[in-house]
Amino acid sequence: MGTYKLILNGKTLKGETTTEAVDAATAEKVFKQYANDNGVDGEWTYDDATKTFTVTE
């Protein structure tokens, strides 16, 4: 398990959240659902060194 971070750079929603997941693929699924639930759809990037996903609208 590891802690993964999501940085939201949406047009109307900005912020950060974290999740505990077994791997990056699992964290990505959780974060994409979170972003979708909050109406954020954009370009995704992932930094393996910091376990950080970023979505920018």
Rank of each mutant, 00 (worst) to 15 (best):
Lys11Cys: 11
Gly42Thr: 02
Lys5Ile: 12
Asn9Pro: 03
Leu6Tyr: 02
Glu57Trp: 14
Asp23His: 04
Ala35Val: 09
Gly2Tyr: 14
Thr52Cys: 06
Thr17Leu: 15
Lys5Tyr: 15
Thr17Met: 15
Asp23Arg: 03
Thr19Arg: 05
Phe31Val: 02
Leu13Glu: 07
Lys5Val: 10
Glu57Gln: 12
Leu8Val: 13
Gly42Leu: 03
Phe31Lys: 00
Lys51Trp: 07
Tyr46Asp: 00
Gly15Trp: 14
Leu13Thr: 13
Asp47Pro: 00
Asn38Glu: 07
Gly42Asn: 02
Thr54Leu: 06
Asp47Arg: 03
Thr54Pro: 00
Phe53Glu: 00
Glu43Ala: 11
Lys29Asn: 07
Asn9Ala: 08
Ala49Asn: 13
Lys29Val: 11
Ile7Asn: 04
Asn38Gly: 04
Leu13Asn: 09
Val22His: 11
Thr17His: 14
Lys14Met: 10
Val22Asn: 11
Asp23Thr: 05
Leu6Ser: 01
Gly10Ile: 08
Trp44Lys: 00
Gln33His: 06
Lys51His: 12
Thr3Glu: 08
Thr18His: 09
Met1Asn: 10
Glu28His: 13
Phe31Trp: 02
Thr3Val: 13
Thr54Ala: 05
Thr26Met: 13
Val22Tyr: 14
Thr26Asp: 10
Glu57Pro: 07
Lys29Phe: 10
Lys51Met: 13
Ala35Trp: 03
Glu16Ile: 13
Thr50Trp: 04
Tyr46Lys: 01
Tyr4Met: 01
Asp23Trp: 03
Glu28Ile: 09
Met1Arg: 07
Tyr4Ala: 00
Val30His: 10
Asp48Arg: 07
Val55Gln: 01
Asp41Arg: 14
Asn36Asp: 10
Thr12Phe: 15
Lys51Tyr: 08
Lys5Gln: 05
Thr3Arg: 10
Gly42Tyr: 03
Asp47Lys: 04
Asn36Gly: 06
Glu43Asp: 14
Asn38Trp: 14
Thr56Lys: 06
Val55Cys: 08
Tyr46Gln: 01
Ile7Lys: 06
Thr52Leu: 04
Thr54Arg: 06
Gly15Ser: 13
Lys14Ala: 07
Lys29Met: 12
Ala35Met: 05
Val22Arg: 10
Tyr34Asp: 01
Val30Cys: 06
Val30Thr: 12
Thr26Lys: 06
Gly42Trp: 05
Phe53Cys: 01
Met1Ser: 09
Val55Ala: 03
Met1Asp: 06
Thr56Tyr: 08
Phe53Lys: 00
Val22Asp: 08
Ile7Gln: 05
Gln33Cys: 05
Asp37Asn: 09
Gly10Val: 11
Thr18Leu: 09
Leu8Asn: 02
Ala35Arg: 01
Thr3Lys: 12
Thr19Asn: 04
Tyr4Cys: 01
Asn36Val: 13
Thr26Gln: 13
Ala21Gln: 07
Asn36Ser: 14
Glu57His: 06
Tyr4Arg: 00
Asn36Cys: 11
Asp41Ala: 13
Tyr4Ser: 00
Gln33Trp: 06
Thr26Phe: 07
Val40Tyr: 07
Gly42Asp: 02
Thr45Asn: 07
Lys51Asp: 03
Val40Asn: 03
Glu20Val: 14
Ala35Ser: 05
Gly2Met: 15
Phe53Met: 02
Ala21Asp: 03
Asp23Lys: 03
Ala21Ile: 02
Asn36Tyr: 14
Thr45Asp: 09
Glu16His: 11
Val22Cys: 09
Gly10Thr: 15
Thr52Gly: 02
Phe31Arg: 00
Thr54Glu: 05
Asp37Thr: 08
Trp44Asp: 00
Val40Lys: 02
Ala21Asn: 03
Ala49Phe: 09
Leu6Thr: 01
Thr45His: 11
Asp41Thr: 13
Gly39Lys: 07
Asp23Leu: 04
Ala21Lys: 03
Lys51Thr: 04
Gly42Ser: 02
Asp37Arg: 10
Lys14Asp: 05
Lys51Phe: 12
Asp23Gly: 04
Phe31Ala: 01
Thr19Trp: 08
Thr26Leu: 05
Lys32Trp: 09
Thr56Leu: 07
Leu6Gln: 00
Asn9Phe: 12
Lys51Val: 03
Glu28Val: 06
Thr19Asp: 03
Asp41Met: 11
Ala27Met: 01
Leu8Pro: 01
Asn38Gln: 13
Glu20Asn: 10
Met1Lys: 11
Asn36Ile: 15
Val55Lys: 01
Tyr46Ala: 01
Gly39His: 08
Val55Ile: 10
Gly10Trp: 06
Glu20Leu: 14
Thr18Asp: 05
Lys29Arg: 14
Met1Pro: 12
Phe31His: 01
Leu6Asn: 01
Lys51Pro: 00
Ile7Thr: 04
Asp41Ser: 13
Leu8Lys: 01
Val40Ser: 03
Ala25Glu: 11
Tyr46His: 02
Ala35Asn: 02
Leu13Gln: 07
Thr3Gln: 10
Lys11Leu: 12
Phe53Trp: 08
Ala24Ile: 08
Thr12Met: 12
Ala35Lys: 01
Val30Met: 09
Leu8Phe: 11
Val22Thr: 12
Val55Tyr: 02
Gly42Cys: 02
Asp48Val: 12
Leu8Asp: 01
Phe53Asn: 00
Thr12Leu: 13
Gln33Met: 11
Thr12Cys: 13
Thr17Gln: 11
Val55Pro: 00
Asn38Phe: 14
Glu16Met: 12
Gly39Pro: 02
Thr17Arg: 12
Thr3Ile: 15
Ala35Glu: 01
Gly15Leu: 15
Trp44Gln: 01
Ala25Ile: 12
Asp48Lys: 09
Asn38Met: 15
Tyr4Ile: 01
Ala21Arg: 03
Leu13Ser: 07
Asn38Ile: 14
Ala21Gly: 04
Thr19Ser: 05
Glu43Met: 14
Asp41Gln: 13
Gly10His: 06
Gln33Gly: 07
Thr12Tyr: 13
Met1Leu: 13
Asp47Asn: 10
Thr52Ala: 04
Phe53Leu: 01
Gly2Asp: 14
Trp44Val: 02
Thr26Arg: 06
Thr52Arg: 03
Trp44Tyr: 02
Lys29Gly: 06
Glu20Trp: 14
Thr12Gly: 09
Thr19Met: 15
Ile7Ser: 04
Ala25Cys: 09
Gln33Leu: 09
Leu6Lys: 00
Asp23Val: 03
Asn9His: 09
Asp37Leu: 11
Ala35His: 01
Thr52Val: 06
